[in-house]
Design a protein around this nucleic acid. Sequence first.
RNA 1: GGCCCGUUGGUGAAGCGGUUUAACACACCAGCCUUUCACGCUGGCACACAGGGGUUCGAAUCCCCUACGGGUCACCA
Length: 488
Amino acid sequence: MLRDDDSEVKLKKMSVRVRFAPSPTGLLHLGSARTALFNYLFAKKHGGSYILRIEDTDVARNQMEATQNFLENFRWLGLLWDEGPKVGGAYGPYYSSQRLVLYQQYLQQLLDAGQAYYCYCSKQELESERKAAIERGVHYRYSGKCRNHQQPGKTGVVRFKVPQGQELIFKDQVRGEVSFKSDDFGDFIISKADGMPVYNLANVVDDALMKITHVIRGEEHLSNTPLQLMLYEALGWQPPLFAHLPLILSKTGKKLSKRDESTMQFVEQYRTKGYLKEAVINYLALLGWSPPEAHKEEELFSIGQIINLFDLERISKAGAVFDLEKLKWMNASYLKKLSDNEFKLLVQEYLAQQSSNLSYSEDWYLKFSRLFKDSVSSFDDLQEQAAFLLHRELRLAEEAQILVRENQDFLALAASVIQKTSNASWESSVIGGVLKDISLASSRKGKQLFLPIRAAVMGELHGPDLKLSMELLGRECVIKRLQVTENF
RNA sequence: GGCCCGUUGGUGAAGCGGUUUAACACACCAGCCUUUCACGCUGGCACACAGGGGUUCGAAUCCCCUACGGGUCACCA
């Protein structure tokens, strides 16, 4: 029985220390970002420390760039760590690969105390044991046959001697009481044959040494908890409090996995597509957590507000399906709240990053920003909505082609009317007058008047305000597009 | 298959024994605004508490069973 309510109370009184401990493989995943965020929120809420630790003990899988990518994206999101890579701290090093002596030390302690032992079984042996168990229809557990056959001087993998008949109960901070039986587990491996520690050992040693008070992680780790609890016990350490977060699911209801390509699931993708970090944070926070009663009808929160309202008790237990539509809506909401100038700066940054080499005046960009601020849900939408401005070549949509073809004479007339105007005063208020002139000259009005022009100039039957669009396009360009009516 | 966790409308979710004829938001639909689209505004839809037993004067809320879904069972983390 590993339950101890007094120690829980004690832990809650200690100054909070939480950690996010990713294994750096691939790109930073939304699920990881969400876990990191919740740790961060919890730490900030309680005036504690948020620690970042890189678990890179699996040399084979470890990737240097992955670590860089993680750090970069955390910085972008604003999830800055109080201790960890680059910033250091009193409990370093913060890379598992640099803590090998520590793991070795505690491994030896377990070995010396007879709580762990070398196992010499070959993989084939274990495999056939497993098969045999399955054939007999019983649950496979390692038999423990090496327990009492230790050969001095001979090493191998190290197994932890799982105590018999123990009830492993802990009070998960989000799911309540969860219990396992030690008898359901065979002696599990805590160190590889090459001396590298296995996750469960490294994790426990690190968390204990780093004085972590709350382990907030994904639900996929729930079943590791009993194993870790046994390790804490064996090492004479007080376990931290655990909180297992619900999984983020894809539309298929399965855990969002890196292999599933149906959803954009890397933070970096949202960053490069021009999403605001405020929106990503806000959305992620609401995936599995909801604000308290007094704010239950709101959902746009700044990070500061979220920190304020955050509480482990309000984390839901069921998995949450990731909904891009909602994130888009949220991003659009944040975009609308920006001032024209802020929006302009971000647009310029985005376009520069997309390596569009447009050289327009600041004033042009400002007008451009006003034109699109309320209609895009992310800067990525500009690719479509502003295509007529961003590319010299205009590609006409099918319906626009038809309309242009049917109205060639009218468009030529419109072009000639515009040609009589001066280039100097080409701005939307003047363009309104020009359009009136065209109306007079062609005796057309309403849709008859505007739609063909829109089609020829913008290539689409719908889009942003026509006059402003024409202004941004420039007089020459508009004339040219009105005239080019044959071969498209 | 063993163990563990979960189950409120298409999605996120509120609800933590009575004030619920179950919020709010996204999506969707309609109307208004608009010389288009979008934004915005207004309204609407969804006929949501997985099913079955209990406990209770009273259950979405507590207990049990079943079903379904998910997670996990590596010398990965």
